[in-house]
Design a protein around this nucleic acid. Sequence first.
DNA 1: CGTAGTCGATTACGTGTGTAAACGATGGAG
DNA 2: CTCCATCGTTTACACACGTAATCGACTACG
Lengths: 133, 133
Amino acid sequence: MAEEPDTPNENSPERISDAEHAVMEALWERSPITAADVCERVCGPRGWSLATVKTLLSRLVAKQAVATEPDGKRFLYSPRIAREAYVGTESRRLVDRLFGGRAAPLFAHLAEADALTEDDIAEIEALLKELRS
Amino acid sequence: MAEEPDTPNENSPERISDAEHAVMEALWERSPITAADVCERVCGPRGWSLATVKTLLSRLVAKQAVATEPDGKRFLYSPRIAREAYVGTESRRLVDRLFGGRAAPLFAHLAEADALTEDDIAEIEALLKELRS
DNA sequence: CGTAGTCGATTACGTGTGTAAACGATGGAG
DNA sequence: CTCCATCGTTTACACACGTAATCGACTACG
C-alpha cells in the first residue's frame, strides 16, 4: 500500500505565479523564442533584467509549463500548456472561490460595478443568442 | 515635502492571501465572532488548528482587513472591508490579467468551457434585460 | 589562439504564506 | 489563594516568489 497519500506523479498542474504569467503571455504571443526575445517583450514594461527572465523561464521549465528545444548554443522556449487551459483554470478558481462556482453572480457583480461596456453587453447578448440555439 | 515617493498613508488595500480569505469568509458569514468561533467554521474543512486561525486573524488585523473589539478577556473580530469590495477587486484583477480588462471574453470563455448552467444563462439574460432598460 | 560576449545553471536574499508551537497574562473553579 | 484553561502575542520554520548577481562553458571575432 502506497503510504504516500499525495500522488507523486507529474499530473499536478503546478501553480503559475504572477511574474511567471507575464512570461507565459510572451510565449503565447509567439513561440518558440529565446530568453532574450522574451526579455525584449516583457523586461521593458515590467522593469526587469534579463537575469530575472531567465530565472522565471527556469522555474516554468521546472513546473513543466514551458518546453525547451536546443538551437545551437541556446534554447528556444515554448509553452507546454495552452493559454485556454490556463485561463480556464484561473477563471474557474475565481468563480469557485468567490461566487460558489456559479457564473451568474460574477456576471451580476461585473454589471453592478459598471465593469461592462456597451460592447461587452452587445457581445454577451450575441453569445447568449448562440447558446440558446 | 514628503520625500517618500510611495504614499505612506493607510489607503493601500494590502493583498489578502488564500488562507486569509477563508477566514474572511467566516467573518463575512457572521460577525463579530471569536477566534474559536472562526475555527469552528474553518478548521474542520481546511484541517487547520486553532493556532493557525489565530495567526491568520493577526495578519488580517495588521493588514487592516479585520477589526477587533474587546469582549471581556477575549476579542471579537469583524471584517473591516466589505465582501463586495474584495470580490470586486479580485474579479477586476482577473479580468485585467487574463482578458485585457474586457468582460465579454471572460463570458465567452465560461460559455465555451460549459461553465454556464441553464440557470446561469437565464439569470444573465434577466440581468441583461435590466441593463438595457 | 586568446579573449570578450553570451547562454543556461547555480546561488542569493528579502518578503509573503501556510502552518503551528511556545509564552505570558488573566479569569474562573475549587 | 492556587491552579488550570484559554486568550492574544511572539517566535518558528519551510517553501514560494520577486528580483537579481555570479559562474562555468562555449563561441565568434580579431
